[in-house]
Write a protein that binds this DNA or RNA. Structure first.
Length: 426
DNA sequence: TCTGGGGTCCTAGGACCC
DNA sequence: TCTGGGGTCCTAGGACCC
């Protein structure tokens, strides 16, 4: 059996941890650039504010209902996530951390009654030791467990079990859009064929499903029937790609600013790459205007370059990324966003050296060693004294294109100078 | 003024090989 | 004259997830 443990309104719950005065009060957390609403307390959900809704559109209603709004504070969320995961891992020898706020575990040899108790126990301990409320769903496949989790969210216990080999109760009342793996597009296709509920989906002919919903859709249907198709992945598999992508705080028109931003995103991506001890064989850049803007000319373009040899050396990656910008950039547009992606990742150790460099000289191992030492030192300094302490000039100085982050809470748990302070009240 | 970011997997089509 | 088919690799795009 699988259990999926999912933190409730995770970012909001993290903020409340250090602001107990916000319990039972409406709270929302915004995405990068303070753009979208990405985490909502139950009170905010009740106001009808949707997940991912643009913040400016709901500014009035947020103000009217005195919603406390935070910019996202990922240092804090990552640290709290780590604490939650460490509690969960005590309950199961095998755990798959699926996302920042969610984990699968395998539990076997317990009958249904004990499964429920087991879940309640995990939930209580996480709440007591970390302070984060969770919901737990248990069933025989991951997709069924996720569905049980949906049911758990609205149950009093916060835990739900869909027993093995049993039909899903009330499946005729659950919408296909609540199923893990059925998104907007598939919901639309299904509804065009009169399929709106989970029991209708399960009853579908599998050949039809394969043809109309592709292989992923077929897996979903089989998983709902109790046939496991999505494997349990205890050990995190190596990343396939690393992406750094951000919207600009202001519309950007000049290639100079685009290049600064792209150099900066490349630097972030390369840091992640080295943290994974990997090298990339390709680098891609894309530029786009504001797709939401009605009255301005639109432009989108992207390109991927193969690197001479796989590398994680920032200066080389920046230089290649900037060449791509030269290729993509057109004057006369209001640019909104740039994306840098590193793909074709392989372990540092496995990387084969190219025989020739572009300048015709072979790159000897001492060049490699020097590059690696330099990156090591810079990564260390930036880790110790804060990101950007040592930066590349290509990233620019004033960085006018940077996004907004105006309502961030302190990094309570990861920066000495931002520790929470306890004060005695009279 | 203001509409997220970081991932994965799947499919289709073109180029190329034998 | 007969104008194939299987395979791989690459790229772009779309769908999904949180």
């Amino acid at each position: 059996m699988y259990a999926v443990i999912d933190c409730n309104n995770f970012f909001v719950s993290c903020e409340r941890l250090f602001r107990p005065d916000l319990e039972m009060k409406p709270v929302a957390v915004l995405s990068n650039n303070d753009g979208c609403i990405v985490s909502r307390s139950n009170e905010v959900k009740a106001l009808g504010i949707p997940m991912g809704g643009p913040a400016f559109k709901y500014a009035d209603i947020l103000k009217e209902h005195k919603v406390t709004v935070f910019s996202s504070n990922f240092s804090l969320y990552a640290d709290i996530s780590h604490r939650v995961m460490s509690v969960i891992s005590r309950y199961a020898p095998e755990m798959e951390m699926y996302s920042i706020d969610e984990a699968f575990i395998q539990i076997d040899n317990l009958n249904d009654q004990y499964l429920l108790e087991y879940g309640e126990n995990i939930k209580a301990v996480i709440l007591r030791e970390v302070g984060i409320p969770v919901s737990i769903g248990v069933s025989s496949t991951k997709t069924r467990a996720k569905l049980a989790n949906e049911l758990a969210k609205t149950s009093d216990l916060g835990v739900a079990v869909i027993p093995q080999n049993s039909v899903i109760t009330h499946a005729e009342k659950i919408s296909v859009s609540d199923v893990w793996g059925i998104g907007r597009a598939l919901t639309q296709i299904l509804s065009e064929h009169g399929i709106v509920t989970v029991n209708q989906l399960i009853a579908c002919d599998e050949v039809w499903v394969r043809k109309n919903l592709t292989l992923s859709g077929l897996k979903v249907v089989q998983e709902l029937k109790g046939i496991s198709c999505i494997p349990f992945e205890e050990f995190r598999t190596a990343k396939q790609s690393i992406i750094s992508s951000k919207s600009f705080g202001i519309p950007v028109t000049t290639i100079t600013q685009i290049k600064e931003a792209v150099a900066s995103y490349t630097t972030r991506a390369a840091e992640k790459l080295r943290a994974e001890h990997e090298c990339a064989s390709h680098i891609g850049v894309s530029l786009t205007t504001n797709i939401h803007s009605k009255n301005t000319r639109q432009y989108y373009n992207s390109s991927t370059h193969r690197l001479l040899e796989p590398t994680n050396y920032t200066p080389e990656l920046i230089s290649e990324a900037l060449k791509i910008v030269d290729k993509l950039f057109r004057t006369g547009y209001l640019y909104k966003k740039a994306v840098v992606s590193l793909v074709g990742l392989d372990s540092e150790k496995a990387v084969q050296q190219g025989l020739f460099r572009s300048n015709g000289l072979s790159r000897n191992s001492s060049t490699h060693t020097k590059q690696r030492s330099l990156m090591n030192v810079i990564d260390h300094v930036n880790c110790e004294y804060g990101s950007g302490t040592v930066a590349y000039l290509a990233e620019g100085i004033s960085k006018q294109w940077k996004g907004r982050r105006e309502r961030s809470s302190p990094r309570y748990t990861t920066r000495w100078e931002e520790l929470a302070v306890a004060t005695a009240s009279r």
